[in-house]
Amino acid sequence: MLTRRHFLAASSALMASPVTRLWAASTLDLGGARLDTLSDGNLVLPGDFILGGMPQAEMEAIVGKYGLPIDRLTPPCNVTLWRDGTNTVLFDAGSGPDFQPTAGKLAEAMEAMGLTVEEVTHVVFTHGHPDHLWGLLDEFDEPVFPNAEHAIGAAEFDYWTDPDTVNTIGEARTAFAVGAARRLAVIADHVRRLADGEEVLPGLTARLTAGHTPGHLSFDLDGGPVPVSILGDAIGNHHVAFERPDWASGSDQDRDMAAATRVALLDRIVAEGRVIAGFHLPEGGIGRVERAEAGYRFAAEV
């Protein structure tokens, strides 16, 4: 069963103010388990970071259908939480305070739903970009989730901790490489490094969905009433990524590989009837994929 839940939270600094922050989370009831998405805020990006290099007229027509501008995009950031009664698993840790001021709000969302950092048993990273990894550490460079096992794809870990990455990733992403290396160094001695197809926990399997980053992982959650795929940024928006998954996107580090990954992933999701949870998808990010006249469409479950 899919439902919508809204959380109203005000930090202590705001209690004397009429301003409050509204948090929305999608909830997927999985029988003996449940999946929530928690808002980490949103990003503010120049449009060409995602849309650059696409066929201009066709791209503008697609993006326009969704009521979006093409010069500035503000994608939401949805951190997925899975609880099965034994494990409390976060997929990614959000941005933390050091990336963009509109993001890094996960702690407020957790507080609003009464979840403490000590309760989190696992933090599983899809990839090493700032909005997914930089919330790993607190202001003292200690892990935010002190009791959690941390896991990331082995290829992803190797890429971001390779000293040469900062020299080859490109000037626009140099800070990404520096920030990832610093954070991963803190957990290097005990982080679990996942292989494609590895069972992370019973019913939870890592799937290599490379292209956005070299070792990007998505995760399949099976064994419940409906199969679920937690996508990270393998499908990074609800417009061109669905309608033209074969188009290269400026947000991907290997654009051709990422496009091939999207095409294959969307086809598998539809064929297997999977519900998806997407980090940058709207309405909390939980929904289904439907075939359209050309390509696909995202149908949020509200």
Rank of each mutant, 00 (worst) to 15 (best):
L133F: 11
H150P: 02
F7P: 00
D252E: 09
V289A: 11
G128F: 06
V117D: 02
R288S: 11
V178R: 15
D158E: 15
P282E: 00
I70S: 14
D92C: 14
F157L: 02
D267I: 05
A103H: 07
T88D: 05
R34A: 09
E301N: 03
D233K: 05
V117P: 00
R193C: 10
I235Y: 09
E171R: 02
H216P: 08
E139S: 15
E198R: 05
G236I: 08
K65Y: 01
P55I: 08
V178E: 10
R34S: 11
L266R: 01
Q56Y: 01
N42W: 07
R173D: 02
T80S: 14
W160A: 03
D246W: 14
H129D: 05
G203R: 02
A259V: 03
F157G: 03
D196V: 14
I276A: 04
A248R: 13
A195H: 13
E171W: 01
A109K: 05
G295Y: 06
T168N: 08
L38K: 01
E171M: 03
V289P: 06
R207A: 13
H212R: 07
A10M: 02
A260C: 03
S39C: 12
G211T: 03
M1H: 10
A277C: 13
P76H: 09
P225C: 02
E301R: 07
M257G: 10
S39D: 05
G53V: 05
D254C: 07
T20E: 06
R274S: 00
L184H: 01
V19N: 07
R83L: 01
T213Y: 10
D222I: 12
A13Y: 02
D256E: 12
T121I: 05
T116M: 00
P202I: 07
M15C: 13
H216K: 05
A148T: 04
G104F: 03
N87H: 15
R21C: 02
D246K: 12
I187C: 04
T213S: 12
G135M: 11
F91R: 00
G273V: 03
E290A: 15
E108C: 04
M257I: 09
I152H: 02
L201W: 15
L136Y: 11
Q253Y: 14
G41S: 01
V44N: 04
T213F: 08
A294K: 12
L221N: 06
A210H: 05
M257V: 15
L43F: 01
R244L: 10
L106A: 09
